[in-house]
Design a binder for these strands. Sequence first.
RNA 1: GCGGGUGUGGUGAAAUUGGUAGACACGCUAGACUUAGGAUCUAGUGCCGCGAGGCGUGGGGGUUCGACUCCCUCCACCCGCACCA
Length: 924
Amino acid sequence: MEYNFRDIEANWRKFWAENKTFKAEDQSDKPKYYVLDMFPYPSGAGLHVGHPLGYIASDIFARYKRLQGFNVLHPMGYDSFGLPAEQYAIQTGQHPRITTEQNVARYREQLDKIGFSFDWDREVRTSSPEYYKWTQWIFKQLFNAWYNNDSNKAERIETLIERFVKEGNENVNAVHDYDGVFSADEWKAMSEKEQSDVLMAYRLTYLADSWVNWCPALGTVLANDEVVNGVSERGGHPVEQKLMRQWSMRIKAYAERLLTGLDGIDWTDSLKDMQRNWIGKSQGASVHFKLENSEKTIEVFTTRPDTIYGVSFMVLAPEHDLVDEITTAEYAEAVANYKREASLKSERDRQADVKNITGQFTGAYAIHPFSGEKVQIWIGDYVLASYGTGAVMAVPCGDQRDWDFAKHFDIEIINIFKDVDISEGAYAEKDAVITNSDFLNDLPAKKAIKRAIHEIQERGFGKGQTNYRLRDAVFSRQRYWGEPFPVFYKNDVPHLVADQDLPITLPDVDKYLPTEDGEPPLARAENSAWNHFEGDRMEYNTMPGWAGSSWYFLRYMDPKNDNEFVAKEKVDYWQNVDLYIGGSEHATGHLLYARFWTKFLFDLGYIPFEEPFKKLINQGMILGRSSFVYRIKDTNKFVTASQKDAFETTPIHADIAMVDNDKLDIEAFKAWRPEFKDAEFICEEDGSYICGHEVEKMSKSKYNVQTPDELVEKFGADTLRMYEMFLGPLEQSKPWDTKGINGVHNFLRKLWRLIHDKDGNVIIENGEPSKDALKTLHKTIKKIGDDLERFSFNTGVSNFMICVNELTDQNCHNKSILEQLVILLSPYAPHMAEELWVKLGNEAGTVGIQPFPEFNESHLIEANFAYPVSFNGKMRFKLELPTTLSKEEVEKEVLAYEQSQKYLEGKQPKKVIVVPSRIVNIVV
RNA sequence: GCGGGUGUGGUGAAAUUGGUAGACACGCUAGACUUAGGAUCUAGUGCCGCGAGGCGUGGGGGUUCGACUCCCUCCACCCGCACCA
């Protein structure tokens, strides 16, 4: 009987679902292990073979951990708020909820076919009201919190108010945007609105006018990580800077902890570096430069206070607050013109324009704090309003941009580096000796930095300071399909909706577009019952996509809890995610926000850990392999790939469904589109048409999308699972290619034949296994175990193949050997393993909870083999031995073993060299 | 420019601590078998050479009895960030 994977897999899927085989218990004597996949956005296109790659890897690992005796939490859900469903709603009028439900159903169907061991009872969807009730609740916690720098954590807003009442704000060391000082009495005298405004500048989520990335095409603002190269990540639309009143998250408060937390987690260096760069810590000093004709100062941030005597001008961002005030009448028009031009440039133009040096003198001067010299003040768009103070002290000898600017506008360049030539460019290394700089003379740069900061502080010009590139994250979106805010307005003051009134559900609207007044789509529900809170109106913005995904890993622990976002005892038991698998594209978005919220919830005492994901693996992207046919110009003739260079041709994407091993199914191609009906073909000598190919991203328009469903249908889920792993290292990007899938399928068939005879009868021998079989098995146990530990699933698959080849050669049908093998196989090919487990006479559904086979090194020794190596004309032998042996034991083993070997031919070894502990060289 | 990574047969790749380079699989060649199955089995398959033999892990150099692996240097490609003061 042949290996009938269709029936086998269908039966076991049913068995697992009916018996809830993979249900995770919230309490257990076993140690816990939490394996998580980044949950998908359920798009209309369904899954392609790239999606399950990470899921298969995590599933194998989850099953491995169960064999090791862990209580494993391995859930799945959907990040189901998002733009595509909403865009579809705008076009068709279909409610995004319906679109989303359909897509979720399709995803589930596809996922189920691959045999994952998810505990589906724990499924979460970010767009379900039962879920986003708690997203809203967390928002409320953030609103009602501030960051205390003294305790270095977030605290409840009441503690801040208490201090304002007692002592005002002067000695409050908080992360905030408030400009000014008030006493306790002044605080008490403030109106409700005034107090609300003050508190807003301290809250961890706050409403403020800020420069945001506005994307007109999408009709919404975007966070920095959603803008790539000056265009929107989704759709690639232009993005402009706009001053808007928006909700933001004070993630800056956590910059330092987000940075230091990276040291304790097991992520790849490249990913940690991406986050470090994004946070962008730099240490230096803030220095105040007095204006020539005013008491006001310009504050700058510099990482090189040691070069302060090299300052020959200052540059302000065109948007800087003081620009208009300081500009002299003579330059007013030129400055206004420059500002206008700068504001018209999009983010993208500005980036593309980096090499163009532009700027404008304001006519104003500042006074150098140390030398007392006059320093010209310029504006220039190479200075960013959003970083530091939006102003720089320019040191042309030490900074290439300042150098270029000075050269371009013919400003003086002062050299303060001893024996350094700066005629061709600035010297940015921190290894020069300072000169020409009064009290800093003869100090090496690194010492001079410390000395300068000390002096700046001493004389009251400024202080040492640390800056971060990380900016607060805009949290509102002018969109429909997202979480509504639990906020209503009364006299323009935002108020929170009470806990018992959560969730604020999405209202129905007639259209999913902004109103005629430009209000977000939710404003269309203005006059409905939805808008019922005692204030004037609800908040019409919705939350961004990353809101729901910033805490979902917590909800899996307690998905149905209606009283808490997660019960204390459950999160205490499951703790943080032990293994997280997903794409690296979330490096500066989801992965940063989730860490932020986790730290916040930790600060408030809701969860017992600060880092959500202990170990993270980024699976590589699976690329498509597109097929091309070559049409000869101005004809309907197609030429095979090998002869295409003889003609002038246009490559056309051919659907990969019509191509097998690069061979085109000509009839299918003719039937594909009417225009190809009468196509003619110039073929290879054997009459076949061979397509060209190229590796590209998988996409519908390139006709190179491979769905897992077709492969499951053709070869079965176990073959698909093993083949995706066999393809190469998990973390590496690779083109999808089905060429080798037969090899994996044949392996499973071969295993099947090892246990069945031709008529489908099970052949098993009880009794003692042979030495050869034991050696094969234990070699495999060792390798498979090691492969799993280091996530080398591709070599894992190979090692199974080797094992089955050897057992077949040995004609081994020994029950105990095969049982062990089946247990080992169960993470990779669970359906096959379950089936064989029963055939070997065991209870159904129990293979997944067997103990992982124990490796016994002694089975390897006896059959070990020494191999001759020639070296310098002498003969040497190498022998692999167990690591547990002592040096003396090794030498004994070697002598005893070698003497019996034929290639010694009676010669006695002259010398035995024991190298490290395991490899032995014997010189004869 | 800065940071991270990769480079091994016709192809995907393996080599875990420096120890037979190319396991395993695809493909290919030749043969066997058949109840024609995306079969199975046997032999071969890094390159050059009839052969003995020589050469081979991006290039060059070094350490070592021994280097894909460690060190120096150069080259190519991929990914991320990029006027961040």
